[in-house]
């Protein structure tokens, strides 16, 4: 089990379905289970592709 924060709301979820999890990782949560980790490099690459298309602003809204 692990504690996750969802926009300021704390919740304990199961991490039985994923491996190699570290404190500080980002995960996709579904019905109380972490289904997968979010890959920060790939997320950045997706945003970078949008920028390359000339459609993205350099800073995303936070």
């Amino acid at each position: 089990m692990a504690r996750v924060m969802l926009d300021g709301v704390g919740k304990v979820v199961s991490v039985a379905l994923i491996e190699d999890l570290k404190v500080g990782d980002f995960v996709v949560i579904h019905v109380g289970y972490a289904l997968t980790k979010i890959d920060p490099e790939e997320a950045e690459r997706t945003l970078a592709i949008l920028r390359e298309l000339g459609v993205a602003q350099p800073e995303a809204a936070s």
């Binding site: 979010i38 945003l47 949008l50 298309l53 459609v55 602003q57 995303a60 809204a61």
Partner: peptide, 20 residues
């Protein structure tokens, strides 16, 4: 929320709409 807000950016969505 990280990895959520970036993908809800209205400006980004609108420019994608122009591209489409």
């Amino acid at each position: 929320m990280k990895y959520v807000d970036e993908f809800r950016d209205g400006k980004l969505a609108r420019t994608l709409a122009t591209e489409i």
